[in-house]
């Protein structure tokens, strides 16, 4: 399935790109955290980004929905360039779902209210319809029975699945995952990865920052390795794991695959 998809994407034209990043730089004060990123994400493509901490991988995906502002270069998401135009930013954010390491559910709202908030206020969907959609996605992440509870009453794995469902309720064209399993107890990682794999099988465009190499092998079309603010290596998972080209990639892989 994966190879066929890859071929289709490569045959596509450049207007088939979901995200285009061209020579993008970012600084935190004097710290040059992203040093000339060039990356094109095709529609339906799934990319896993890995690399040591501080390499800029989280910052990279946070630039795509403007949680961080880039200072040089261009980022074009679904045909719209990210500038200071707040309307464009809000439009792009509505199209791009994001899942955080620490879930960031809204603790003062019930699960179902967490899910309906975006559709109701951003998409102006009627409340009843939004709740219907919310229940649909809660079923999908196998957690519908918790709909009336508050986030604090759920386990970490359940909260992260709710967070994924919350993003899906906005019917996003692209999903960003920022280390979605790093804050979870080991026994809960699988339930979250399973939901992400299901999502991948349905053809969602995904950019995932993770160290779950099993996940990368089974669903990613490309694996990116980042270090010191640069994309050092980008390849298919088979090539990336079996035949890494750069010494830094080899070193990194030897450290995380014991």
């Amino acid at each position: 399935m994966k190879e066929q998809e890859t071929r289709e994407m490569q045959n596509g034209q450049s207007d088939n790109a979901m995200v285009e990043i061209i020579d993008m730089h970012k600084w935190f004060g004097d710290f040059h955290v992203l040093q000339g990123i060039d990356l094109t994400v095709q529609k339906k493509e799934r990319i896993v980004i890995c690399g040591p901490s501080g390499s800029g991988k989280s910052t990279l995906i946070r630039c795509i929905n403007r949680l961080e502002e880039h200072q040089k270069g261009r980022i074009i998401v679904d045909g719209t360039e990210l500038t200071n135009n707040i309307k464009n930013i809000e439009k792009i954010r509505a199209e791009v779902g994001m899942v955080f390491q620490h879930f960031n559910l809204f603790p003062h709202l019930t699960i179902v209210d967490n899910l309906t908030l975006g559709p109701i206020w951003v998409r102006k969907v009627p409340k009843a319809e939004a709740e219907e959609t919310a229940m649909f996605y809660l079923e999908k992440v196998h957690i519908a029975e918790q709909a009336r509870k508050y986030p604090g009453q759920l386990s970490g794995g359940q909260q992260q699945r709710v967070a994924i469902a919350r993003s899906l309720c906005m019917k996003p064209k692209l999903m960003l995952f920022d280390e979605p399993t790093s804050a979870l107890d080991p026994e809960m990682i699988k339930e979250v990865l399973d939901v992400m794999i299901e999502l991948a099988q349905e053809g969602m465009t995904m950019l995932v920052v993770t160290h779950e190499m099993g996940f990368a092998k089974s669903v990613a079309h490309r694996v990116l390795f980042m270090d010191f603010g640069q994309i050092v290596e980008a390849n298919t998972p088979e090539e990336f794991f079996d035949n890494p080209q750069h010494d830094r990639t080899k070193l990194f892989l030897s450290q995380i695959l014991h």
Partner: peptide, 15 residues
Amino acid sequence: MPRGQYEAAESMGLN
């Protein structure tokens, strides 16, 4: 308020 709350709200497109 944790920064994540702002980020979660903003990343949904809330103004």
